[in-house]
């Protein structure tokens, strides 16, 4: 059963409230950066969460696979995500 249509497909990581676990749907944007992200383990199906924001509003503090990376929100927008709850429903 797919619940995909119940969730907006254009959700990206820069627009997600803090401390909300999400699942990576796919990566868009410039190839070199996408490749770098993937090599760090940012791959479809992996859980990702925005933990915080730097004092001046950018960049973001992102947790993935037990490590933390900092990305600017312009680039975090290249990470399309869906809610982690939806992922559970899908796998069910």
């Amino acid at each position: 059963m797919r619940y995909q249509n119940d969730y907006p497909m254009n959700m990206n990581l820069s627009a997600i409230p803090l401390r909300t676990p999400m699942v990576i749907e796919r990566l868009v944007g410039e190839r070199a950066f996408r490749r770098r992200l993937m090599e760090l383990g940012f791959l479809p199906g992996v859980e990702v969460e925005v933990l915080g924001v730097a004092p001046f509003g950018d960049p973001l503090d992102i947790a993935i696979r037990g490590c933390r990376f900092s990305l600017r929100s312009a680039e975090a927008a290249c990470i399309l995500v869906r809610s982690a709850a939806a992922a559970h429903l899908q796998s069910a």
Binding site: F33, R36, F69, L71, R72
Partner: peptide, 8 residues
């Protein structure tokens, strides 16, 4: 260059 900084 996009920022991609590990926070160890």
């Amino acid at each position: 260059v996009p920022l991609l900084l590990e926070l160890p």
